[in-house]
């Protein structure tokens, strides 16, 4: 039984190999650099694919791009230099996180502007409502209110009178 389990484990390990082979294994002396490599390959978009980072894609160009990222990290280039290098060749398309510049102002600014617009609209609505609530009575309403108050007063008097009358009897 134990032997069978071992064979099963070996079989499972062998089955998982092809998925590992798609993206090569890199050696890093520095864990910080390894993290930077992961971040860069996750944020660079494969130009050949529809929607995949170069870290996820096994298309040849993604492999070439990973290789350049790796080489340039080893050469001590900064993240920005590496991203510039890629944008220079493949255009802004390869950045999953577009840069904030003149052309992308609308892209970055629009959501913020829409939120702001929403806040302004809500404030205007609340104000309008409050205005209605705090508004004074019109002439007609005041007259009607007076009439109501007056009528109630009369009724009460009448009632008391009645009681009074009853007590008198």
């Amino acid at each position: 039984m134990a032997r069978l389990n071992v064979w099963l484990l070996i079989l499972l390990a062998a089955l998982s190999l092809p998925t590992l082979a798609a993206v090569e294994v890199r050696q890093f002396d520095d864990p910080v650099m390894e993290q930077r490599y992961r971040d860069l390959t996750a944020t660079l978009r494969c130009p050949k694919c529809q929607n995949q980072s170069i870290g996820d894609s096994d298309s040849p160009i993604a492999g070439d791009m990973r290789e350049r990222v790796y080489q340039q990290l080893q050469q001590g280039r900064s993240d920005k230099e590496i991203l510039d290098f890629m944008v220079h060749r493949f255009g802004d398309y390869v950045l999953y996180n577009p840069r904030l510049e003149g052309r992308t102002l609308l892209l970055w600014g629009l959501p913020a502007a829409l939120v702001l617009l929403g806040v302004v609209l809500v404030l205007m609505l609340v104000r309008a409502r409050r205005h209605v609530a705090a508004r004074g009575l019109s002439e007609a309403e005041r007259a009607r209110l007076d009439a109501l108050v007056h009528r109630q007063g009369v009724d009460r008097d009448t009632h008391q009178d009645t009681v009074h009358d009853k007590r008198n009897e």
Binding site: P47, K48, S59, P60, I61, D64, R68, R89, F90, G91
Partner: peptide, 12 residues
């Protein structure tokens, strides 16, 4: 090696 292709931004 595709080095010139890479510098041209060629992906196919």
């Amino acid at each position: 090696e595709g080095s010139l292709g890479f510098d041209l931004g060629v992906y196919g």
